[in-house]
């Protein structure tokens, strides 16, 4: 029961922002490309439900388009992590104990050893700040997460009878990995993907807060927070809307991930009954 509450609440919270992001492609309440200095820093009213920012732009519209930036960056970054990490993990598990396994394992440790935010800062210092570089920086650190998870779970699958049967029937390791191992990992990957997605949204917010994410005029939640920082004593609502947007999205995704894990993981399900 509680599990489904989590899923519903999580899907609702994060769903609001997903929908807002999609809607923003076709409609936003106000144009955010033209500035209106005379109307700046207005508190929330009927006309501007979340008020206006320091350039007189409608904050609701900014948050909606910002959702697009955050979600797109996070989604692609996690995609990169999965796209590279899962095959690496499958390969390492298929050739357990080999040199390849050792290299992948040590490589994962090495990436983990780098302070992620620092490396992201170095990457953007080298290649310039942009949404793309934020994606790469966040993506790199998602690779070992998925590689480790995949390797660990795949290893236990390799010991299972149906895999041995497939081996006996003469399928090679690549086919077994793709046809038998991977489908059995999908639930796990969905759960982890949801969690990583929420972490990536936090990371994107942090990067754009320090000015290393998407560049203006593209709005992003982190930069909206950074822009509002000096005006927080004048107009606290400037910092509230983007901050709450981050919190709700991340919270929603975490609840969703936890709920899904409970549904997928039979051991935990048993525990509840």
């Amino acid at each position: 029961m509680k599990t489904y509450q989590n899923i519903v609440l999580g899907a609702l919270l994060s769903g609001i922002f997903m929908v807002a992001a999609i809607v923003s492609f076709v409609w936003i309440p106000y144009d955010i490309e033209s500035l209106n200095i005379a109307e700046r820093m207005r508190p929330p009213t009927m006309v501007h439900p979340l008020g206006t920012d320091h350039f007189g732009r409608d904050i609701l519209s900014m948050v909606m388009v910002g959702a697009r930036t955050s979600i797109a960056v996070a989604l692609v970054a996690v995609g990169i992590g999965m796209g590279l990490g899962v095959p690496l993990g499958l390969a390492a598990a298929a050739q357990k104990g080999s040199l390849l396994d050792e290299i992948i394992g040590r490589g994962n440790d090495l990436v983990f050893a780098f302070p992620s935010l620092l490396i992201a800062i170095l990457i953007t210092a080298t290649f310039g700040p942009s949404a793309l570089n934020a994606i790469i920086a966040i993506g790199i650190f998602n690779v070992p997460v998925f590689a480790r998870l995949t390797r660990g779970s795949a290893l236990s699958l390799w010991k299972r009878e149906f895999i041995m049967a497939a081996q006996v029937s003469g399928k090679n390791t690549v086919r077994i990995s793709v046809e038998h191992i991977l489908p059995n990992l999908s639930n796990l990957l969905i759960v982890q993907g949801t969690i990583q997605f929420s972490l990536a949204i936090l990371a994107e917010a942090a990067l754009s807060y320090v000015g290393l994410g998407a560049q203006p005029p593209t709005p992003s939640w982190g930069r909206m927070l950074a822009d509002s920082q000096t005006m927080i004593s004048l107009a606290p609502h400037l910092a509230l809307a983007p901050g709450l947007a981050i919190v709700f999205t991340v919270l929603g995704l975490n609840l969703l991930g936890d709920g899904l894990r409970d549904v997928f993981d039979p051991r935990l399900r048993r525990e509840r009954t």
Binding site: E33, S34, L35, I37, H54, F55, P216, P217
Partner: peptide, 11 residues
């Protein structure tokens, strides 16, 4: 800040 304003004026 000036850059964002100028960008919008040039646009």
């Amino acid at each position: 800040r000036g850059g964002e304003i100028i960008a919008s004026q040039l646009r």
